[in-house]
Each structure stands twice: as structure tokens, then as C-alpha cells.
Design a protein around this nucleic acid. Structure first.
Length: 131
RNA sequence: UCAGAUGACCGGAAGAUCGCUGCUGCCUUUGUGGUAGAAGAGGAAAGUCCGGGCACCACGGAAGAACGGUGCUGGUUAAUGGCCAGCGAAGGUGACUUCAGGGAAAGUGCCACAGAAAAUAUACCGCCAUUUAUUUGGUAAGGGUGAAAUGGUGCGGUAAGAGCGCACCGCCUUUCUGGUGACAGAAAGGGCAGGGUAAACCCCACCGGGUGCAAAAUCGAAUAGGAACGACUGGCUACGGCCGCUUAUCUUUCGGAGUGUCGUUCGGGUAGAUUGCAUGACUUGGCUGGUAACAGCCAAGCUAGAUGAAUGAUCUUACAUCAGGAUUUAGAUAAUAAAUCUUGAGGACAGAACCCGGCUUAUAGGUCAUCUGACGCU
């Protein structure tokens, strides 16, 4: 797994600015899975080796303990999936849903892979539109 | 053994793999680097309800008014509405618990319904005397109303009654004794002053300036705009403009637009960064004083510091606990209890955000200490 990262030369950073979150949300490319919602768009700056990922857990997920746990699980999933199935020059935002605390970890990995696949496929086929 | 009361404590464990945060050492291509090491959430981190430290703002000092808060006494503390020790009242067989516990003889307001009468009192049925009378007078024992009706019980007394008199209890005043005090006890005097409500206004005593670390300080880009200086650049003016010049190439006319540009410096202080920011009313242990809260002294220690917010994720193993099933033992082939095996579920409330002291609320399950009552045994 580490080798994959090295081969592709990709580096994962986290999104921190509110503006970035809004930009990704407005791009209107998203895929919904039982545990989370995945949004994506192209990066404005051109650095080939960086993928940026933002995490959102609103109050709907639960209290502070449950929100933090949701973010940590998302971060772990991203670490294992994004390294070899993300696209260069893209920003991603992952929004937690209530079920994220209860679902098994393997299912989260499978769902994120599937969501990324669908997003990239639809981007290639029909531009930026996806409902 | 059972049922309680009070106080204190724990609040998941072990292993493997992969990470995150700042710190220290070394290396270093000085970077958002590499590597090694030790460290990294709570009893409530929560609610943001009180009290402080700290910072800024306002303000000459002090007192008062207004507003808000507190409200038995003494102590403790940086401080409190907290805590400790007492007092009083209420509850409990008891250990013990609860109390918004100053003033109702400073004044004002309110008290439904019932009732004669709910407060400058008064007399419905009664009782007694008197009278021709359904009259007049005396009474407040008894009845009735109500949450509440001029203190209670007994004896005397009387026409009937009544603190009218007496005894005891209650109440009020004064004095004495004990206590720092809240208050307690005793004696003497007074026939009794008179409902509730102050979580109604109010009175009395004491306390309180405001805003909060997104406070505040330092450094400080980029863009736009501002000021000063220098270089080059057209005049007139009555300050409204007019003429001139420029606007990709030559000449003329008309219309529109422009009339300054460049460089340096300064100030403002935005994004961002650093400080504030963890050596403190600190933690642990011991000794001394104190009933205790707590205080003093000595020794040792350094124990989270994030900022879209680290302190974990995944897997495995037992274990507490819960539910179902089976077997054995006790028991009446019952109910039930205990033990063993097995299958499944499964770890509460909850995440530091400047820091402390409290309070309140949430919390699966478990441990310990002291004490009380009941039963049994000696």
C-alpha cells in the first residue's frame, strides 16, 4: 500500500478553508452512499502530486464524540482508498451521515471506492453534471 | 444474613499492524525534511449557573440614589450564593435527611366558596334572665361554616357564662445564668397583647463599574485606496470653465474619452504568524495546628496544548454484564436457588479550547470504609 503511494507520487492534504468547501459543493458532482456523501471538483492550482480532501460532520450525526469519531473513520478510509483510486488535481469533500458509526469498516472502504469510480466515470462521459 | 444511611474511589483490560499532535536529542539537501526517545482528555472535559486570577475600556477621591444580588450564627477562603462546625423548625424506630430559615406591634395590598362575622370586628342557631309579646338585656360554654374564628386541659365560680379566679402547659415583658454568637435554661411579673401571605409591594443589614483570550500585545505580505518627496510633463481663469495636447500611420472636419506617468519612502494593520499558553491559589508524600472546612512547614516532581481543531483507526484474545438452551445438586418429579457447559448480544454518560475554586445536570456496571435497624448465635 505504501508502495502504491510512492509509485503514483500522490500526497493527501486536508481542506481547511470554508471557501474551498463551498467551491466543491457548487461543482455539483456528488455520489451518495449509506454512510457518506462524496463531492468532488477540479483544483484551481496546478500541482500534479496533491489531492486535497475535506471532511464534514454536521450536528445531524450526533454529539461531539460521535462527530469526531465519524471524522476519524473517514480519515482512515481515505488513507486506504484515495492513495490509489483518486484522480490527480481534484478536491474531494466527504460528508458524514448518521449510519457511519455503525457500519463495518470494510463496507465503508467498498462504498468509497464505488463512489469514486462512479464520479470519475460520469466526469469522463458527460462533463460535470450528475444527480 | 437481610433492609437501609453517609462518605470515598474506579469507570474497561492485554496484544498486533497502521497513523496523528506538539516537545527533546542527532542528522540535514534548512523544508510543511529524516530518524530515535519519552509524553498526549474527564469525573463530569458538559451546562455556562456563581466566584476569582489575567487583559482591555471607562473613571480625580469618598459617600449617596437607582438597579441587581444575598439573607439564622460562627468560622474558612483569593473570593463566593461554595465548604465546615453549630443553632432553630419539620420528617424518620434509628443511622440521618430536608429548609427561599431577617422583619407581619413601620406602612400598603390580597385572601375565592362557605359562613352571622375573614379584621376600626361581630352574634345565625343556642344558653340564661325578663316580658302580654316573634320584647328587652346578659353571654361566647355548645352547634354550624371554613385552610384559618380572641390559647389548651381541669377544678372552682355563675341566672347562664366568660382568664372572672386558681393549677399545669403555651405566649409576652423584664432580670439573671451559660455561650464569641444563633440560642438555651431559670426566676419574677402580666390574664393574653391576637389569622395567613414578604418565592406581593416594602423595610433593614451586607455585597456589586463594564466587557471578555474572537481579551490583549508584537511582526506583517498581496490587492485597492491615502500622504510626502524626486524626475519628466501645457497655458489662461471671474474656479463655472475655455483654449491647447494625446487618443496604432499622413492631411482636414465633427463627436466621445483622457489630461498625468514612473520611482522611493511613510502611515494605516487585512490574510497569516508569534506571544498570551501552562511553574500553578500546581501534583504527590510526610509532619505540625485545628472537631472540621482549612492553614503552615519540609521533601520530591513537571503532568495535554490542538486551532476544519491531535490524543486515534482496524483486527484478535480473554473478562464484567444481559438473554436463550442443556445437565447436575438442593427442594415436594413444583415454584425457586446455586454450579457447570453451550449459543448469541455486549462496555454508561460523554471530548480539553486562557487558567483556577465551586454548583447543577447526565452516567452501564463495580469496589471499599464507617454507622443504623431487624433477626439469629455465643
Amino acid at each position: 500500500m505504501i508502495q502504491v503511494i510512492e509509485n503514483k507520487g500522490l500526497k493527501i492534504e486536508t481542506l481547511k478553508k470554508r471557501n474551498d468547501f463551498l467551491r466543491v459543493a457548487n461543482a455539483n458532482r456528488k455520489w451518495v452512499t449509506p454512510a457518506m456523501v462524496v463531492q468532488t471538483c477540479m483544483q484551481p492550482e496546478n500541482d500534479d502530486h496533491i489531492i486535497r480532501v475535506g471532511f464534514t460532520a454536521s450536528k445531524k450525526v450526533g454529539n461531539a464524540v460521535q462527530r469526531n469519531r465519524a471524522k476519524r473513520r473517514m480519515r482512515e478510509v481515505v488513507k486506504r482508498v484515495m492513495a490509489f483510486s483518486a484522480e490527480k488535481k481534484h478536491d474531494y469533500v466527504i460528508i458524514a451521515r448518521k449510519e457511519i458509526a455503525d457500519l463495518p469498516f470494510n463496507e465503508l472502504i467498498r462504498d468509497l471506492k464505488w463512489a469514486l469510480k462512479r464520479l470519475h466515470k460520469s466526469a469522463g462521459k458527460s462533463g460535470s453534471r450528475n444527480n
